[in-house]
Simulated assay, not measured.
Amino acid sequence: MRTNFYIAGSRLLTHTLFWVAYVMVYTGVHADGDDGFRVYFLNELQGLPAAMLVAYVNLYVLFPRFFAKQKYLLYCLSAILLLFCCSLFTRVLSEWYVEPVFLANSTHPDPIFIWYFLFKGMLWFLSPVLLFTLVIRIFQQWFIQQQQQQEMIREKLNAELNFLKAQVHPHFLFNTLNNLYALTLESSPKAPKVVLKLSELMSYMLYDSQSGDTFVQKEISHIRNYIELEKLRYSDRLEVSLNVSGKLDHKRIAPLLLIPFVENAFKHGLSNDTDQVWVTVDVKVKAGWLIFKTENSCAETLKENDLDNYKGGIGLQNVRRRLILLYPDAHELKVSKEPGRFTADLKIKLN
């Protein structure tokens, strides 16, 4: 993965404009009057090949072979050698070609090995180019690593969500088919209605829930179908209340996120030995928050591990994990137990 920041998408144009800017900036810094501008412009032009050599050797040879592999000592030695060779190349180009051809009347020949000019070329003219290209490569490498890390996080997130959602389907289907099985054993006339509701539930799970999110109203319809199935099974023994309030239009939520709470409410509420059991489901949208609450009846005297069993069910474990992945720092979940009552309170900040 490589991200390039080219002007107008053109690599050639970007590099050309960079070197034009390089020559003009250095010329402007050193120029002194009209005569000085011409002289220093020629000086910068004669130093341009060495600067380009430093830049591209550093970008495509030294950095990937040494710096990127954390061979910093080799990189430093190679960079110093590169600067020296390029500074020497500039001296050769200046004394043997540029000055004799363009500045013959205003200059005189000098020896190539004048250490002051060699070190000046290395430190003043070529080192900034080396450092600039090094910073570019470091930033580019960091940016690519960040992109790769984010891509890995996204892939891991999608894999975990798909796995967790896949776990919801068989868990939910298992509970519903058990209900249908009990009715068919009794040859109950309610069985066809159960099949119809089950068909609607499966349609939602197979199609509507495959997108990243769904409308809150659809999720509520899914819950309502589930409640109707349970009411068909338990008839007068079960008292169910579903309350919906607030403006739900165009509000969206991750699919199959609420149904495990309803499943658990029925599972634990109907497991009591009492003749009359009840389940209450409240859904409200207020001030950008989805407030979801389930309550169910339970025995007045509970075993110590009842709440742990409630919290540790497969459905709720999946929901907790999905909430962490989908709504980090944007949800609150509380599960509590009181005499005769289990309660689950969930708040989700809607985008």
Rank of each mutant, 00 (worst) to 15 (best):
A254F: 13
K267Y: 07
A287G: 01
H268N: 07
N272K: 15
V281S: 06
V279S: 06
G288P: 06
A265Q: 08
P260R: 05
L270D: 02
N272Y: 10
V262T: 13
P260N: 04
L256T: 02
V262A: 02
V281M: 00
F261E: 02
E263K: 06
S271G: 10
F266R: 00
V283S: 04
D275K: 14
D275A: 14
K286Q: 09
F266T: 02
D273P: 07
P255Q: 05
L258M: 15
F261T: 13
N272L: 10
F261W: 08
T280F: 00
A287H: 07
G269Q: 01
L256C: 14
V285K: 11
G269Y: 00
K284Q: 15
L256R: 06
L257E: 04
W278N: 02
A265R: 03
T274G: 08
R252Y: 11
Q276W: 03
V279I: 12
K284R: 14
K267I: 07
V281L: 03
N272H: 12
S271C: 12
V279M: 05
V285E: 13
N264M: 03
A287N: 13
L256S: 11
L270P: 03
G288H: 03
V262M: 00
N264P: 11
S271Y: 01
K267H: 08
I259K: 07
N264Q: 10
D275R: 15
A254K: 07
V281P: 11
F266W: 06
D282C: 04
P255R: 13
P255M: 07
E263W: 00
V277G: 10
D273E: 15
N264L: 03
L258G: 11
D275S: 12
H268C: 04
Q276S: 13
P255I: 03
F266N: 06
G288I: 10
L256A: 02
H268L: 04
D282I: 01
T280A: 08
D282H: 12
T280D: 15
E263F: 01
L270Y: 05
I253G: 14
A287Y: 04
G288L: 11
W278Q: 12
V277A: 15
V283N: 09
V285Q: 13
L270R: 02
V283I: 13
T274L: 09
K284L: 11
D273V: 11
V262Q: 00
V285C: 13
D282T: 08
D282K: 15
D282L: 08
I253C: 06
V279W: 12
T280P: 08
V277S: 14
R252T: 15
I259D: 09
D282N: 13
W278E: 03
F261Y: 15
L257K: 12
S271H: 10
A254E: 11
V285M: 11
N264G: 00
D275I: 14
A287M: 09
D275G: 10
L270E: 01
L256I: 02
V281T: 11
P255W: 08
N264V: 01
H268Y: 15
V277P: 11
V279G: 09
I259Q: 04
K267A: 08
V283G: 14
G269A: 09
V262I: 07
D282V: 05
G288K: 01
L256Q: 04
S271Q: 09
V277F: 02
L270V: 02
S271W: 04
I259Y: 05
L270T: 01
N272G: 13
N264F: 02
K284V: 02
G288F: 03
E263Y: 09
R252M: 07
F261Q: 04
W278Y: 12
F266C: 07
V262W: 03
V262C: 05
